[in-house]
């Protein structure tokens, strides 16, 4: 598949995502007692997708992840010891995500972040042997500035929209779903590479995400299988974390002033 063939497909995807984002959501905004707003008008549909994702995780992703992890990667590692194959895949995939993160940094008016990501990409792609190793962090203290087009939209003042759980991709919002599609469209790598190379890049990035799942599987398993309502728990944790990353967290909660749980006359 060449780049020019792919664009129409992506454009259709983008149009769908935009439609989803613009569709008038009834938006019954509810808030947790800790002041975390939850806007989930598509909850019934989201719960169906969640059940599908949970099944997929149990039957496909977790077994593969556990096998990958079986090679001793799970044990605590001496930071000076050589990294294993799993970490190499994670590193290489993450490295390939840096150009589009750099573009987003520019779109957000954060040239320093854009520069840091681009420098990382240059150092790790060469000295780090195609991004398998991370000399940018280890030798130059240059860590990744994680970002995406969802964050760019947030910086531009686009509201978060409703909560969505997407098939395979997992938790998102209307704003972030649009961001995920736009990230594919504006990724310089897909514009510079031909179809086969672009496919390889995409594959490696998916493998990297799967590797992350393998490494931090205990946490994911705990939420998906150990929780009384894994849908609600995933939604809450994801929203809190995402809003924290985007600087959109709400007010801090003080349980000592929560008359719902403490009798104010008791103290």
């Amino acid at each position: 598949m060449t780049v020019s063939h792919r664009r129409p497909i992506l454009s259709v995807l983008l149009a769908c995502a935009l439609l989803a984002a613009c569709s008038p959501a009834p938006a019954p905004q509810t808030a947790t007692p800790q002041g975390i707003d939850i806007n989930d008008p598509f909850e019934a549909q989201n719960r169906r997708v969640h059940a599908f994702n949970k099944g997929l995780d149990a039957r496909v992703i977790a077994p593969v992840a556990n096998r990958l992890r079986g090679s001793g990667e799970r044990a605590p590692r001496d930071p000076d010891a050589p990294i294993g194959p799993l970490q190499m895949v994670i590193n290489a995939g993450r490295n390939l995500s840096l150009p589009v993160k750099s573009v987003n940094g520019l779109l957000q008016g954060r040239p320093r972040d854009a520069g840091a990501n681009l420098t990382r990409f240059a150092v790790n792609s060469t000295v780090g042997l195609g991004g398998i190793f991370d000399p940018a962090t280890d030798s130059f203290g240059l860590s990744e500035r994680d970002t995406d087009f969802g964050e760019t939209l947030a910086v531009w003042g686009v509201p978060e929209g409703a909560y969505l759980e997407l098939p395979v991709l997992g938790p998102s919002t209307q704003r972030d779903a649009v961001g995920q599609v736009v990230d594919l469209l504006i990724d310089p790598l897909y514009h510079l590479l031909d179809g086969r190379e672009a496919g390889a890049v995409f594959g490696l990035r998916v493998a990297s995400k799967a590797g992350d799942r393998a490494r931090f599987g205990d946490t994911v398993d705990g939420i998906l299988r150990g929780s009384a309502d894994s849908y609600a728990q995933t939604r809450l944790i994801w929203l809190m974390n995402r809003r924290h990353d985007l600087g959109e967290s709400g007010d801090d909660y003080d349980p000592y002033d929560d008359a719902q749980v403490l009798d104010p006359y008791e103290n």
Partner: peptide, 27 residues
């Protein structure tokens, strides 16, 4: 405010323990 110096919440990368336990225990 309990009469002793104690912590009452841990927030890891924005994920608030009180909020997630309220949802979990509620469920």
């Amino acid at each position: 405010r309990s009469g002793q110096d104690l912590y009452f919440n841990i927030i890891i990368e924005g994920v608030n323990m009180l909020a997630s336990e309220r949802a979990e225990i509620g469920a």
